[in-house]
């Protein structure tokens, strides 16, 4: 079972081609119209008729497209891991309160900085500290959800605890917002809209590091994840160390979701919807097939969402977080209506 059979090869090739197409499409669209031929020639290191076009592509659109790939893929993998770990089709980085944990971390950093004092406060606000605050926030939430997991066996209760955490952190964020000044508030609100375009090349380096670590742990856990499909007791009888596996899976999820949320802000629904899309497409539950499939589908989806968010040929840009929800919610509804029963 564990080897990807030839049947899947065609799907992978199709997904890869779609990814290339979505990537190029994403690069070509934006508030400045750049001909497709010029985009390709810039990427290949050739000359362009206008140096501004080259600048826009290399320093704005290319990093943004790369971030979209990493964020879309990474969040989807995090969702896949959570859905298998909790054996619940509704699980995802967002539902379990990971994202709200991250937002609390960032809120405390941005808005709480005012309480600490102006000088040290402004020092704290570089990319590294935002990454750290977000990762720390989501990791703390994960630890609480995890300790709850060991105490209660009911997965629905764990989801409700995650939901409660969302409400709880939301309340703290509101209180922080109430006492902070307009500038800080604006900074946080913009962070919460999600933005793929604000990541520097250095940021992409850090993001890639998180991504590679999270992916490595996910792939390493692939075999245990497959055994977990049978439920915890069966997995145990097959020799899976449940505690170690659970810890690894949650670690991978918090590295992926925490890291990505730190750089691009909260991005809703991708983590929940994409694993279901890949399951429908590949009709399998085998993680060695699903992990690459989910990765590719997630990257494609976020690239397309970002292309829509750019509102091509206008000077307006929509918040990416809104676009993914606009797209994600109907997809989940459509899946449920089409299948009547969610294949999981």
């Amino acid at each position: 079972m564990m080897q990807a059979s030839k049947k899947y090869r065609l799907y992978y090739i199709l997904l890869l081609l779609t990814l290339c197409f979505a990537f190029l499409l994403n690069l070509s669209l934006g508030s400045v119209a750049i001909p497709f031929k010029e985009v390709v020639s810039t990427l290949l290191g050739g000359e362009t008729s206008k140096t501004t076009w080259q600048y826009i592509i290399m320093n704005y659109r290319l990093p943004k497209a790369l971030v979209a790939c990493i964020a879309g893929g990474g969040l989807s993998i995090a969702g896949l891991l959570m859905q298998t770990l909790f054996r619940n089709p509704l699980a995802g980085p967002f539902v379990l309160g990971l994202t709200s944990g991250a937002s609390l971390g960032v809120a405390i950093l941005i808005m709480g900085a005012g309480f600490i004092g102006g000088f040290t406060g402004s020092l704290l606000l570089d990319t590294w500290s935002i990454t750290a605050a977000s990762a720390l926030g989501s990791f703390l939430v994960v630890l609480v959800v995890l300790s709850a997991t060991f105490k209660i066996k009911d997965t629905m209760a764990i989801l409700i605890i995650g939901l409660m955490f969302g409400t709880f952190t939301g309340a703290i964020v509101s209180i922080l917002a109430y006492f902070s000044n307009a500038e800080q508030l604006q900074q946080f609100v913009f962070w919460s809209y999600g933005s793929l375009g604000n990541v520097s090349w250095t940021g992409i380096g850090i993001l890639s590091l998180c991504f590679v670590m999270g992916m490595a742990i996910s792939i390493f856990s692939g075999k245990s994840l497959n055994a977990l499909l049978l439920g915890e007791n069966y997995a145990k009888s097959l020799g899976v160390g449940i505690k170690k596996t659970t810890l690894l899976i949650i670690l991978a999820t918090s590295i992926l979701a925490g890291g990505i949320t730190a750089f691009v802000g909260p991005i809703a629904f991708v983590g929940l919807a994409v694993p279901h899309l890949s399951r429908q497409l590949f009709t399998t539950a085998n993680h060695f097939v699903l992990i690459p499939a989910t990765l590719l589908t997630g990257s494609i989806l976020l690239l397309l969402c970002d292309s829509i968010a750019q509102l091509p040929f206008t000077e307006y840009t929509l918040p990416i977080n809104a676009v993914t929800s606009l797209f994600g919610a109907p997809v989940v509804i459509w899946l449920l209506i089409r299948k009547r029963k969610l294949v999981f």
Binding site: M1, R87, L229, L238, R279, T284, A285, K341, V343, F344
Partner: peptide
Amino acid sequence: SVSNLSVYELVSL
């Protein structure tokens, strides 16, 4: 609840 696994995949676990 392994609805998405084939019989062969389930047994091979």
